[in-house]
């Protein structure tokens, strides 16, 4: 059923991505591909994988942006994947019922046995979360690693999405964003986590944490205050005379 679940459950599983920490290593994207090429959405077909124009299905893509100008400019690495929106138009446009949002945890999934491959859901998503598998003829998307997070054969510590498990700098966090007391919700509250394209009205579950303000001077690097500018710019007396002599 592609109507949205009613009533909606309180639980909203999702990701929090810290743009201050992400180093753009693409490990999340690669481990996502690795896990999901064998998971419930398998295969994630690659066409012409060793040729000149390889193309294939990925659920996670890491963009790198330049933001700001000149000395205040910075590079921000930006992982992009399904945001498991509260108002997912990708679900409601689906003519077959293949696309659905789970009432119990808010995860948006595709039932590949029902999908006719009309691609309308991918048109309805402003975030580019869905990629069509040309070989299988159906749409595929991030499952929030539903086959990991509820997998009781895993140690509890490993019951997180593959992208979160692999991130070497802990820029990705998984949890219940519907619970204001959860670690991810508190992180969002403390750091000012935000929605992507809020003007679309899709109410994404996933949140992004903004890069922290940049340190403006050397004195802010964390060194002890008394070690900060060690040598005064001008000295007087004998030392000042020697300094001037040597500075010539």
């Amino acid at each position: 059923m592609t109507s949205l679940p009613d009533p909606v459950g309180a639980k909203r599983l999702g990701l929090v991505i810290d743009l201050d920490i992400c180093v753009g290593c693409h490990a999340c994207a690669v481990n996502c591909k690795e896990w999901n090429a064998g998971g419930i959405a398998a295969p994630l077909t690659d066409l012409d994988p060793y040729g000149a124009e390889p193309t294939g299905v990925w659920f996670n893509r890491v963009h790198s942006f330049e933001v700001g100008e000149g000395a205040s400019g910075r590079t921000v690495h930006f992982p992009r994947s399904c945001l498991h929106c509260a108002e997912p138009a990708c679900v409601t446009v689906c003519p077959t019922g293949a696309s659905y949002k789970r009432a119990e945890d808010g995860i948006v999934l595709v039932d590949e046995d029902l999908c006719i491959g009309c691609k309308l859901c991918s048109w309805a998503c402003p975030y580019g979360a869905r990629e069509f598998d040309e070989d299988v003829g159906v749409m595929k998307k991030c499952t929030l690693c539903i086959d990991r997070i509820y997998n009781e054969t895993f140690d509890p510590a490993d019951r997180v999405p593959a992208c979160v498990a692999t991130c070497p700098v802990s820029a990705r966090h998984f949890g219940d964003l519907g619970d204001p007391g959860s670690a991810v919700s508190q992180m969002v509250a403390e750091r000012g986590g935000y929605d992507l394209m809020p003007e679309m009205g899709y109410a994404p579950t996933n949140k992004y944490l903004p890069p922290r303000p940049r340190k403006a001077s050397a004195g802010c690097t964390g060194a002890l205050a008394e070690l900060a500018p060690a040598i005064p710019a001008r000295s007087s007396g004998l030392l000042g005379w020697i300094d001037q002599l040597l500075s010539r």
Partner: peptide, 18 residues
Amino acid sequence: SATGLGALGKVRLFEAPH
């Protein structure tokens, strides 16, 4: 608005993901 980074300045693509 797509990246939420507007407060830091103009956003330009530096490197595509693929």
